[in-house]
Simulated scan of single mutants.
Amino acid sequence: MNARTKKLAVLFVLTLTLFAGAKHMNAEAPAEAPAEQQLTELAEQWCKQLAADPSFATWRGAKLSVYPLGPGTHSWMVILSQQEERVGYFIIHAVENGGYTLGEYGLDPYISLLDSFEQQTSLLPGTYSNENNEAAAFYYIHPFLAVYASNNAAEGLYELFSSEQLPVTIDQFKAEAQSSSLKAKQAELQALTNNKIATAGLSRLASFAHVEPFDSFSSMPWLTKASLNQNYSLKELNILKAQIIKAIQKDEQLRYVTEQYKEAVLFASSVTGYHQWDEQLYVALSVPEHQTAVRYIPLSVLMAYGHFYR
């Protein structure tokens, strides 16, 4: 595993709406009403709560634009912008029994490749082309299976946020997306998030805290130490939640690590804070390739796909 591959950040999404099989994203076509209106209202409510955190000052008065994440996914991206500059995003999923859940949110631009590619109506949903008429497709399975694929198969796959080339082929990506191990993780996540406590609403941002970002590879405790989370259960979720809150409040360094593609690719990120929403904890992860970017992902999702290290 080369150093360039190791330095991939823990990046992008789907979280609670998980499925086996690659899906395309259509992120530049506006959502249809009434979903757009409902999602905008939800996002506005969350923005008001997040205003308590000074880190989200740029979200005040931001313009909200809603885009579907692709056919059949029942998920949307809400982009926040100030004077045409992206300052953040929400990822929102529909739930089976009605309503919506917040899958992820974050600060600053988050898909740099979309700045140079525009959707073309003559191409398939989720397919884009740039000014040189080069085509590309974006695939999303879960937060750590998110890639950009050129129509030129020889160019391979690229991690969405870092734009780093991955040492895997499109066939390996699809195999990972359909693997039995992924289905097992999805089942565990679904069972845990069906729990009333794990899926409590997001009506109030109860508390938050931050630490300064640090180099996630300056130390590699995953090589020498046991992770903080071993078993996937509600009990461990609550224990880990308390550990993360305490560590952040004491300015301790935590790292989050996940391995994908049969351990061929390792993603690592520094834990830079948390948001406590009622009973749910969203953990802040740095994006090393983008110094001001931060992703907030539910702890239950992070537990499903990786491990925390002190």
Rank of each mutant, 00 (worst) to 15 (best):
F217C: 02
L228K: 10
E289G: 09
F90H: 07
L16M: 05
L11A: 07
E159R: 04
A22G: 01
D171E: 14
I245P: 06
Q280M: 03
S218C: 03
S286L: 10
S180M: 10
L42K: 10
L189T: 12
E252G: 04
L157D: 15
S179M: 15
S203R: 13
L80G: 05
L8D: 10
A175I: 11
Q82H: 10
N97K: 12
A146L: 03
A293C: 12
A226S: 11
I91A: 11
K174L: 09
A136Q: 10
L228C: 12
A187R: 01
L123H: 04
I92V: 15
Q249I: 02
F267Q: 06
T121C: 02
A177M: 14
E176K: 08
Q83F: 00
Q49D: 09
I79P: 00
Q178A: 12
T121G: 02
S219M: 02
L145P: 14
L113F: 03
A268H: 15
V95D: 14
L182I: 00
W46K: 07
Y309S: 08
A22I: 02
E134C: 04
S129H: 15
R255D: 05
Y158C: 07
E134P: 00
A191M: 00
Q49Y: 10
W222L: 09
K262C: 07
S218K: 03
L64H: 07
R60E: 12
S116Y: 02
K246I: 02
L166G: 13
Q291H: 05
K63E: 09
L189H: 11
V66L: 00
A209L: 07
P167E: 13
V168A: 02
I248V: 13
E212F: 02
Y232P: 05
Y232I: 03
I79R: 15
F56A: 05
G21D: 10
H142P: 06
I197E: 15
T199P: 11
V301W: 03
L205T: 11
Y67L: 09
L69V: 00
A9H: 12
K241P: 06
F217N: 07
L228W: 03
W59S: 13
Y282R: 12
Y296Q: 10
P125K: 06
E96Q: 14
Q82L: 11
E155F: 04
L42M: 11
M220N: 05
L123A: 05
D215V: 04
L42T: 05
G201H: 00
G126I: 06
A191Y: 00
K23T: 01
A62Y: 00
Q165D: 01
Q230C: 08
K250M: 03
I197M: 11
Y67Q: 09
T127V: 03
M77R: 07
L113W: 09
Q276W: 02
